[in-house]
Design a protein around this nucleic acid. Sequence first.
RNA 1: GGUCUCGUGGCCGAGCGGCUAGGCAGAGGUCUGCAAAACCUCGUACAGCGGUUCGAAUCCGCUCGAGACCUCCA
Length: 487
Amino acid sequence: MNITIFNTLSRKKEEFKPINPPHVGLYVCGPTVYGDPHLGHARPAITFDLLFRLLKYLDYKVRYVRNITDVGHLENDADEGEDKIAKKARLEELEPMEIVQYYTYRYHEAMRMLNALPPSIEPRASGHIIEQIELIKKIIENGFGYESNGSIYFDVEKYHKKYNYGKLSGRILDDMLSTTRVLDGQEEKHNSFDFALWKKASPEHIMRWPSPWSDGFPGWHAECSAMSTKYLGEPFDIHGGGMDLLFPHHECEIAQSVAANGKDAVKYWMHNNMITINGQKMGKSLGNFITLEELFTGNHKMLQQAYSPMTIRFFMLQAQYRSTLDFSNEALQAAEKGLNRLLAAGRALSKIKPSEKSTVDVSKLKNEVLEALCDDLNSPIAIAILFDWVRNINSLVEGKETITEGDLKTLVTTFNTIVKEILGLVDNQDEGSKNAELTGKLIEMLLEMRVQAKTNKDYATSDKIRDELNKLGVKVMDTKDGFDWEV
RNA sequence: GGUCUCGUGGCCGAGCGGCUAGGCAGAGGUCUGCAAAACCUCGUACAGCGGUUCGAAUCCGCUCGAGACCUCCA
């Protein structure tokens, strides 16, 4: 099946054709590890995790590279402020690499809980200083970088004369020239929109490396160009990230690659949209961001309750990645209930008894879901189709619809593959630890006793068992031929 | 100010010229000792005003409103 991808470069959906099939190179901008992972980090992680899973399902050999930015990301993009990690280190009186280590670990933990598969390679900017220096050398050789006081800057104006600066973000250089002219404290740069490739470190700056130009550190944009090329070659297939990185980060990446190698490094650019809270973007400066831990524990003034990692994942998948997604308690609670219904149907599959003939068309499920996902990752449609099947599954359990043994096998495999492997929605209830197994057996023992009480019309006892279990968080449901329960 | 998105039923969210998703909430019903779950039925929504068309939520124009980027952010 062919995948179409909305390419930011052309602003159109394009058919995805890998450069070297069956191999696919996927690079996604990862976090700058100077703070706890938040709701915003979850969006690209889940979006590109879905793409990764889908591509693998379609038998592509995917190399998924997602970086860790641990140096060079400054407080503001005028190439002025302090390095984010250095600042955090100073505030916490820690070694910068302690900050990096701690928040990288926190990020990994959160991603694991969200069931986002680890990338194939997770390179760190600080581990690729040499590659970045080589890249900068090439840019200078080709005449697009200049030295100023030990720092190296990218000459955007010169680059634009030969190539097209702004083609990704739709920015027009002449407009930028006329609207930005204040150069307070930016004497090192020829133009305000020039960006740093290498920054000379001030004496007190801890994170510093030797280079031909000065002891210093690389500019923020250099790492992605250097590392994507190193691990995926040039050109490679897909580069992803949040929409907020479109400008200047990705625009600069393009300029760097083209300036160094004379050609574009990326075939398809993909950008996920933002999470909003009450219609407004979640952002550090707005003070309205929620960390993933707060979300998982419910420990935040805006949260009415805790939301499980799977609820968050499902919530995100219910919207297409290019739409903004508005966060609210109401929306998350709806997602939680919907997810439970979906997962309950998955569990109910084992209760279906095969019949002589099928009154449902199983073959359609897989095709329709894949078709939706292959259309620029339209996960909401895929989920809508799954819910049609939730209804079918429940009807099959009740015997209102029938299915042959062969079709049932297909249904079980297909449904589980889509939900668990492709959408990555796992059911915590079937994570079979010894304890969980024991608990399950104990609950069932109690419920057997309750059935006994019921047949004896001893409703006092039967209700007591149910109420006590409810108190412990076990939901009890009677069925035609017994009972059902969930935690 | 420049560039660009978007306004869909109570809420969230698909749809991108005709066949009017889905989830949650709500109403009624079936089942049941009760409850829960499940199932069935129900709401005819597309910011406003014009235009194109046999036909528009979907295309064009204007108006109103919201938001994003141009500063750090995924």
